[in-house]
Every structure is written in C-alpha cells, then in structure tokens.
Design a protein around this nucleic acid. Structure first.
Lengths: 200, 200
DNA sequence: ACGATAACAATACGTTCGCATCGCAACCTG
DNA sequence: CAGGTTGCGATGCGAACGTATTGTTATCGT
C-alpha cells in the first residue's frame, strides 16, 4: 500500500514510469527514422499515439524530453551489462565492447539514436555531460575487467590496462560506425573485436 | 581570357566558385556551432553576410546546399592528403589516419561538421553515399600504403593489409570521437595511432 | 455527494522555416 | 545607346514549429 505525501486529497493514479517510457520509446523511433532534426513534439506524440499535452505534462519542454531520451539510452545499455554479472571477465569485456554493434533492427535503432546523440553532444553541453559520464564508466569498467582477467590468466602484453581499454573501446566505436554506415558486416566487426579481446 | 558557350551575349561575370565556397564555409560554421538542426537558409545567409536569394541562386534548395557542404568536406580532406604525395608510405599512412584528430579550432570545426554528417547519413541516403565512397577510398588508399610499406621494409605481422587498414581506420574514428567529446587529449590520440602504425 | 487536485486534451499564439516570385542592377553585344 | 541576359536582393506565403493557456475528466478523502 502506497502512501502519498499530500494528505487528504488523492488524485487519479497512473503508472508514471510506464507513461514516460512509452514517450521515450516513441522519441527513439522518431530519431532513428528522421534524425534528431526530425524530432518535434507533434511527431513524437503521433508516433506514441498520445497527445502533445501529455508529453508536455511529463517532460515540460522539448529539450528536457530529448535529454531524458539520452539518459534513458545510457541506462538501458547499463541494464543490459548488469545482466552479465555472473559471466567470466573476458566474456563481460567482450559484451561491453561488442554490445553496441548492431545485429538486428532493434540494435540498429539503438545505435542510430546513440550516434544522433553523439553528434548533438558537440553543441549541447547537457548531452555531452551524460555521454562523457557514460564513457568514463565504460572505460573504468573495462579497466576493471582487464585487470580481473589478468589476475586469472597472467599479465598483459606490456601495455597498461588503461591503454588496452581505450584501444578496445575506440576500436569498437569505429567499427560500430562502419557497420552503421553499411560497408561492414556485423559479424566481421564482432570477429575483429573477439580477436582483439583474445589477444589480451 | 574565358570564353562562354552562348555566343554573342555575355552577362555579368563573377567568380562562381568563390561565391559557392563562401556560402559552404558559412554553412560549416553554422553546423559546427549549432549542429545540423540549426541550419537554415537565413542562418547561413547571415553567417556568410549574403542574402538568402544568393544561396537559393547557387544551390537551389536547402537539401542541395547541405549535400554540397558534405562533398566539399570530403574533397577538402582529399586535397590535404594529396599534399603529402612526396612523403614515405608510412608517413602518408599516419597522415591519413591522424589527420582527422582535431588539434586546433579549425580542425575541431572540421570534425564537428564531419560527425554531424555522419549522424545525418543514417537517415539521408545521398549523404550516406558520399560518406561511403569517401570511406572506401580511404580504406583502399590505406591498403595501398600498407602494401608499399611492407615492400620497403618487410612483410606484416600475419594479418592481411585489409584487416590492418580497417583496424587502423576504425581506431582512428573511435579516438577522434573521444577527443571531440573532450575526454582525451589530441596528443594522446595521435600517440596511440603512431604506436599502432609503428607496429606494422 | 462534494470539492480539490492530478492528469491530461485541445487550442491558440507568435515565431521561424523553406521556397516561389518579382524586380532591378550589372554587364556584354550589336 | 538599345536590347537581352544573368546575378541576386527583397518580399510574401503557407506550413510547421515550441510553448502557454484553458478546459475536461478521473480519482479519492471527507
């Protein structure tokens, strides 16, 4: 049984989280299909099958909506990583660096949206902060996983764990781009990452 | 002395190429400062210090202007590469992969615009074609340079020249992104690329 | 039953957009 | 100088935009 802070009067109750998520998902679809320049409250509302008023009610302004879409994207990626908690370090590492390679349409959409935000981050400091924090987190996690793997198997090839982590992540980013543009097959990209992880 | 195709009548003569380039440069500035969503004929016209009518006269439509900005960007990069024609293969290779790392404000602008187009290429097939062709050209050139370098020094480390080229280019893309977002120093990125090129 | 309030939907408003059009000035040829 | 042509600035239009505001409905303590 939930308790409400305001005593006495209780208004209509809905699942706010669910509502927000529906809107954010529609936002992602619009970004993936028409790019960030194609985002408008009307478009998103139509895609979600809701009214503009609802979006305004939950996010206030368009800028806030777009930013919320960014943080949601980061968190959903992090959620996917946490599901690998009971795997070996090397497996988890491979997941971190190859998770973003688009394998199906859903993954394709995710990466499209991701790169839309990357481009936006150049001129939008709020988005930039979110992405920078996510990247820092991924790098630190990679360093941890590489160290854990070294402890289990042996030491590295002379480079520091940080250098190796940066190398892997940068390579993954570049390969993702290639797959996204369409002149590299997902399997090839994943294969190259497997080789690189295997070399540790 | 120039000759004109239409005989008899000669209209007012201006340097079309120069005019087009002024407008394209202003377009780049707008993209770098406000992103591609911030591009409008009025904005670009104001940045270039010309009228909207002029832009329409030279490019017709906004979409054509944006696409022209993309091809110009590719060609300017290619022009920069051609200036290294009389350098050693290894030097040229390093130039190809590290040229895009932003070192100063001008480079920063170039890369910002580049990534804006990359994001746009996801939903714009015309831009995608231009970028895909550029990337294919870069890859082929890298393969050539790697083979030339092998011929001069010895053979590779077991991977094919194509694999090595892809690895280098993907790594460069990823590192560029990191520098652009701001959590990696240009010198560090270039250093990593030098190490990687040196390993060939 | 009632009144207060959250959760919206609907609408209205002012701005900005891309683009079409018009008109004039610059320019060359005859 | 007359006539024709290009270059392009100025203006206007309809559509689409983000946001503020207003109106309606559902819900629950009293």
């Amino acid at each position: 049984m939930r308790t409400y802070c305001y005593r006495g009067r209780m208004p209509r109750v809905v699942d706010h989280e669910e509502r927000r998520w529906e809107i954010v998902y529609a936002l992602w679809l619009v970004i993936a299909q028409h790019g960030i320049e194609g985002v408008s409250l009307r478009h998103v509302a139509a895609e979600a099958g809701v009214s503009m008023g609802r979006i305004q009610h939950y996010f206030g302004t368009k800028e806030a909506l777009v930013l919320a879409g960014c943080t949601s994207l980061v968190q959903s990626a992090y959620g996917g990583y946490q599901e690998t908690a009971d795997a070996a370090p090397r497996e988890r590492l491979l997941h971190v660096v190859s998770q973003q390679i688009p394998r199906d349409d859903a993954g394709r959409m995710g990466v499209s949206v991701w790169y839309a935000y990357v481009a936006k981050s150049i001129n939008d400091s709020a988005v930039r902060q979110v992405l920078a924090e996510a990247r820092r987190g991924a790098e630190e996690e990679c360093v941890r996983l590489i160290r854990a793997d070294r402890g289990a198997v042996g030491d590295g090839d002379g480079r520091s764990a940080l250098e190796q982590a940066r190398h892997l992540l940068a390579l993954a980013d570049g390969l993702t781009l290639r797959v996204l543009v369409g002149d590299l097959e997902p399997a090839e990209a994943v294969g190259m990452l497997e080789v690189e992880v295997g070399r540790l």
